[in-house]
Design a protein around this nucleic acid. Sequence first.
RNA 1: GCCGCUUUAGCUCAGCUGGUUAGAGCAUCUGUUUUGUAAACAGAGGGUCGUCGGUUCGAAUCCGACAAGCGGCUCCA
Length: 592
Amino acid sequence: MSENQDKHIASVRHSLAHLLAATVVEMYPGSKNSIGPAIENGFYQDFETPEPISEEDLPKIEARMREKLKTWGKFERREVSPEEARKEFAWNPYKLELIEDFSKDGQQLTFYVSGDFTDLCRGGHVEDSAEINPKAFKLTKISGAYWRGDQSKQQLQRIYGVAFGTPEELKSYLDMMEEAKKRDHRKLGQELDLFVFSELVGSGLPLFTPRGTVLREELAKFAESLRAGSGFERVSIPHITKTELYKVSGHWDKFGDELFLVKSQETSDQFALKPMNCPHHNQIYAARPRSYRDLPIKYFETTTVYRDEKTGELGGLSRVRSISQDDSHAYCRRDQVEEVVGSLIGDVQTLYGTLGLPLRARLSFRDASDKYLGEPELWQQAQDVIRTLAKKNELEYFEAEGEAAFYGPKIDFMATDALGREHQVATVQLDFVQPERFELEFTAEDGNPQRPVMVHCAILGSIERFLSVYIEHTAGRFPVWVAPEQVRILTLNDDKNIVDFATTMAEQARRLGLRVTVDAGNESVGKKIRNAELMKVPYTVVIGTKEVESGQLVPRVRKDIEVHTEHDPRTVDEFLKTVVHETKSRVSKTSL
RNA sequence: GCCGCUUUAGCUCAGCUGGUUAGAGCAUCUGUUUUGUAAACAGAGGGUCGUCGGUUCGAAUCCGACAAGCGGCUCCA
């Protein structure tokens, strides 16, 4: 899309926000519109309404908008004085507040009039409302939003709409949303039996079933193997700590309200569930004197942290209160930062490359403000290193000034899923502050103590959140190496030879480390195939008299998997060997 | 946390304006059937209608509180 088209569609969306405001004010007397900009894919408008508007009212409002659009006419601009503006909007406290703000800054106030509706607005509309295609917009949802995004202020009702240049574009957008709904990881989690929530356990605390646990473990194992390859050593820490730890680290002030506190009945110490792992890992580092020769020291662990997130923000696996991380901390000398960060970037690329998720990197740097801790010279050096590595690793990247953490610059990775949606996933962060707070040291060549630089990294990030992305990306059709159930063996009937053959084959497969089940139930083959398909099992094998007699089988391969050779009959051994190979080498396309 | 909506069997959902033993499909169990690549047939079991409280002669249905779930709460006239 060209820049002009972008501009035009934004003005269409903005104009629709006006139309929406006019329609609601007309249909719900006493309503006061506040603001309504164009946003990605559409627009919204915030209202104070005497009665709550519900989702069911949207079609009515939409119909009335189309009606009004016919005679809506041109958008006419008029410059007005603050007095005039105040008079016009005496009924609307939100506009009055805006009028005060803008006129205080000496800005020229402007009205835009179209149809029978006048609004305070700085502009950016279509010239004539005939440019708005009445079939290319739709009101979608309704929600609460605070006046000026401020929790302490009046809560308004926000009505959202989507709008495009043509009905076809609208349709393809709505189809995409439909597809996203089908792939919703919460729905698939239920259908594929991956995880559950229990009211007794609490919200935001997912329980993983055997199938879901396989997913977690396979992905974590992959991340662990990359870590091992990069010289990280595994450590293990308890999930609680005295709160003292966070007072030293500085997290107490920052994370205080997200902390789950744990009370001891034995001692007077106050404990907390860990909301992050670095302070614990730091204690392992600090437990003995370190030499420059020992560095970099690299600790790694797959473990769970707990954060008391706001209940309204929880949802499925995307936002949980028990967060499993593949978390690592490397302690290194300044001259080792490049090597350490470089190898982590490589690991991130390997993992996402294997999973088929394209990456984009945001280099989050500091700006000129003084909220950042640590020597500016060290920052500069670290940011240069990051930029150099981004180039060297051929990352698709952009720099974001002011996005750095207060303790150091970082690289945030975003993955694009099969529906084109971008999700923040892996992160590599430099930290100049914690080594200081914990007084971490190593003895340098000259015998003097020095501070190490800390590098935090999570490749999967939060495993729960990653799973939500990955389930939706694959629509539950996991590659063979990740699939909770890799092979399902179906029996044609309950003939003893057939059942024995199937059972023996399953045992053999399990000894090879494969995840296999036997369906010997009293159902038609068609039904059993259907069940296997619904569970998205990659390979299904039917065992009948033919197979028992010949010892050969023709596996049924899940449709999305690309098969590189024909489905020749093959022996059980040959088949299982292929699946084992695919599992070990983490291929997603079968070679059968 | 805040606003709006939702909560009926393991799952997906019916149940009109409050009125007798709350329904269906799938799943489960039991029979029959012995099946060749996306749903065989019959029967049975299963719900204190999210929880607690209220209104009423009477509540799944109306009201309130709590819990859980869903859509949002950054985009600034």
